[in-house]
Nucleic acid binder design. Structure first.
Lengths: 190, 190
DNA sequence: AATATAAGTGACAACAATGTAACTTTAAAT
DNA sequence: ATTTAAAGTTACATTGTTGTCACTTATATT
């Protein structure tokens, strides 16, 4: 008994993602999104009470997807292979880093009453906890230095994707160098 | 023959800095700044044509200050001491990292006509060039691995200040661990 | 004391985003 | 064919920022 929908949620999130990466959280508006979806602005209000709710919904979707894909790591044996997988994986998902940052930005402003707040707060922690088991494995296998805090190891690895390649070093060389620094540092052994 | 000024540029920049870090570039408004300075909004327009001009002026001031203080590094002898100085220095100036990011954000939107554009573009490069001589020294002394791109080494070091310390690791342990990772990596030698 | 002039203010129009309410359209169910 | 209800649109009031202009205030110079 209802009319056909002009757009689906996945397409909407796709467009929202592009706009968020292009304009940032503050630059993102319903007008922009409505235009891009060829739909009236008011139509969006049928599904989302406001910008916050739409964006938090989108972020939860995006981070769950990321976490789901990350779990492929379990299929690999041994820490070394998993380390390589993780590094390559996050470099195919550089956007997630920006989105997580945006998520923190949103969280700071979020109304206490927002339904999504709790869920959105949990997801980064879940990711950390998940990666933590990976770190633990590395330490148990004697691969990772045991005296370095787990959270720093995780943060360090995730942060590398945000290093700006101002001078256009070729991607593979860039990634390989980063892996080497993480593994053995940038100093020569003396 | 003129009335006394209610505020000076340094105080203004101080307030602007706080507001920028608190609200981000987009959240920063003349109303906010005027309120904080106990001055009418229109008064600000006597000195700056718009938000862009004020913020770019401020950023140039801030980055020049940073660069100036960084040059203390020249008083130290040998790469090892300079490395330590640099690491400690950027950790006393974590805001500069956010400001540089904001600067890039501004640059992207800046009108071609903006007088400050050229100058603002040059400063990060100047900083890179300056740090580059430091990197070169490390390579010449045989301390730094010569096959890792200079720009990555610099970016890597600068980026470490942005790693979020979600779990509140004590500052000194945090910084020391970062130094160790940068120097020798997070893997055990095998 | 008079004056010139920079410093500062208040008020206005223009613009854009937000959220809502009354309306129209479409298609499935009866 | 009629009804029903969700999908979508148009139009409006509200809010806040922006930039500008005419105006007032204060002070150094004459």
């Amino acid at each position: 008994m209802a009319r056909e929908r002009k757009f689906n949620t996945v397409d909407l999130f796709q467009a929202a993602k592009q706009l968020l990466l292009e304009y940032g959280y503050d630059g993102f508006t319903f007008s922009l999104l409505a235009d891009r979806m060829d739909v009236s602005r008011a139509a969006l209000y049928k599904y989302y009470e406001n910008k916050e709710e739409l964006i938090t919904d989108f972020m939860i979707y995006e981070m769950e997807l990321f976490l789901h894909e990350l779990k492929e790591i379990e299929k690999l044996n041994g820490f070394d292979q998993q380390f390589d997988f993780l590094m390559d994986f996050i470099f195919t998902k550089t956007e997630i880093h920006h989105l997580i940052k945006a998520a923190l930005h949103v969280l700071a402003k979020l109304e206490q009453t927002n339904i999504n707040k709790e869920k959105l707060e949990k997801l980064p922690l879940e990711m950390y906890r998940y990666l933590n088991t990976f770190i633990l494995k590395g330490k148990e296998e004697g691969k990772l230095k045991s005296h370095i805090p787990d959270s720093l190891i995780i943060g360090f690895i995730l942060q590398t994707v945000a290093i700006p390649n101002h001078f256009g070093v070729p991607h593979q060389e860039w990634v390989n160098s980063i892996k080497e620094i993480i593994r053995q540092g940038m100093f020569n052994n003396s």
